[in-house]
Computed example of a mutant assay.
Amino acid sequence: MGTAANLITEPADRVLKITRIFDAPRSLVFKAWTESEHMARWWGPQGFKSTVLKNDLRPGGAYRIHMLGPDKDDHWTQGVYREVIPPERLVMVGSWADADGNPTRPETTLTLLFEDVGGKTRLTLHNAIFESVTARDLHNEGWTSTFDNLAEYLATVS
């Protein structure tokens, strides 16, 4: 039984889970995560500017986003949508990449759950499995800052 049980166990120290309530309807928060024109307005940590280069929103569809950091450093993220269930759930598998689209870090799975809570949205992010605790902690900082950007953006469109 030990081997089978280990296949479904995630190493808790390399898993990131963030839950946050956004003061916007679930349908709008989902659109902000899935429509390129919305994504470009808030995606990335504070001080970053993002360009959505590809966004084929369907299971098996690819996405690729370029983020320009405040120090003019380039960051690319890319991957494939695994599940798209509007306005409830998104699952994406992706990684950091170089300018040519070659992955530079191991893939992680990003699962987003969108729940209606009285006209607001509870967004739960589950990102796993990171190659190290350090990578998880860096992503925690990045996603927390990104969620701040999303909250600011939603206040302008809701």
Rank of each mutant, 00 (worst) to 15 (best):
N127V: 13
R26C: 01
D137C: 00
M92F: 10
M1G: 14
T124D: 04
L53V: 04
L53R: 05
V157R: 02
S145G: 02
Q46D: 13
G101Y: 10
F114S: 01
A32Y: 01
K49Y: 13
V93D: 06
A135R: 07
H75W: 14
D71N: 00
A5M: 15
D23P: 01
E83C: 07
R14Y: 04
I85L: 00
P45L: 07
Q78T: 08
P106W: 07
A5K: 15
T134S: 14
P59C: 07
L154V: 07
Y81Q: 04
F147Y: 10
T34M: 02
A155T: 06
N140E: 15
L123I: 06
R41Q: 14
P87Y: 03
D23L: 11
L53A: 01
K49W: 14
D13R: 12
H126G: 10
T19P: 05
D73V: 14
E131Q: 08
L112C: 14
L16V: 02
L110N: 08
G101T: 07
P25H: 05
S158T: 13
R82I: 13
A135H: 10
F22V: 01
A24D: 04
F147L: 10
F22S: 00
L53E: 01
I21M: 09
A32T: 03
E115L: 12
V52L: 05
E107M: 12
D116R: 00
G94R: 02
E115D: 06
R14E: 09
A40V: 11
L7K: 03
T34V: 09
S95H: 01
R14C: 06
M92L: 13
M67I: 00
Q78V: 08
I21G: 01
L113D: 00
Y153Q: 03
A40K: 07
A4H: 14
N127H: 15
S27D: 11
H38K: 03
E115H: 13
P11H: 12
P106I: 07
L28R: 05
G101S: 10
M1R: 06
E83Q: 09
K72A: 09
E35M: 08
D148T: 07
R89W: 06
R105S: 15
A40G: 11
N55K: 00
Y153L: 06
D23M: 05
T124E: 08
S50A: 11
G94W: 00
I129L: 13
G2S: 10
H75I: 13
D56V: 05
P45T: 04
R26P: 01
E10H: 14
E152D: 03
E10T: 12
T146G: 10
G79R: 01
W96A: 06
I8P: 04
T19D: 11
N127A: 15
N55D: 04
V91M: 02
W96H: 11
